[in-house]
Amino acid sequence: MYLTRFMAVIFLSLLYLGLSSAGVAGAATHTRPDPMEQLRPFVNEIVGILTNKNLAGKANCRKRRQRVMVAAHERFDFNEMSKRVLGREWRKLSPKQKKHFVTLFTKLLEHAYLGKIEDYSKQTVEFKRQRIRGNRAEVQTILKEKNVVIPVSYIMILENGNQWMVYDIIVEGVSLVRNYMEQFREIVRQGGYSELIKLLENKIDTLEHDLSKTCPIDLPPKEVP
């Protein structure tokens, strides 16, 4: 008697669990967003900032870059990128070290990505196609300007079941994260993690220095009457 009741409880709870998890899974597939549809407004926003007449010119350079980066944080998962670029090394880091690395790597990507897109002020972006596998997706776009056609793919991961976040950019078939991964691995192998941080900091300093020649920080903002 006791045993049958016990079995019944187990059976019912299993049934309930099964039903609810099926329900959750069903709901998730139904509400799962489309990666391309989430990427499109983001890319349009970036293009909008770069072609905005009020933000054009040398004087607005910093402002423009800052706007792009604010937008980028909405769709780029810099944490995920850092994790992948460091590979095994990532797991050895303390939370504080991780945070520091993410900050540095984000800064580096800011230079890499903005440098690439800033030249193309009259660019158009065409969304080609996408593929989804599990919680990963690749969205292929084409950057066009006059005679130049550059295929750019965004590699995305589904987070919290509703946001597709970019964790790698593939420019002409070359993965940005993988390319840095190869370089970082060599550096860590030879000089350790501290050497990598040192080199990263130096590189960012150099890039900042170069940038300040064409994109001055302390330019007085132009007053619009």
């Binding site: 580096l108 230079h111 890499a112 440098g115 002409e172 078939g173 070359v174 993965s175 993988r178 390319n179 840095y180 190869e182 370089q183 970082f184 060599e186 550096i187 080199l199 590189k203 890039l207 170069d210």
Partner: peptide
Amino acid sequence: KLSFDPYVALRDAYFQY
């Protein structure tokens, strides 16, 4: 400008491409 070791960066880019 953006790489830490241009030799490694270019080698990897070649194979990926």
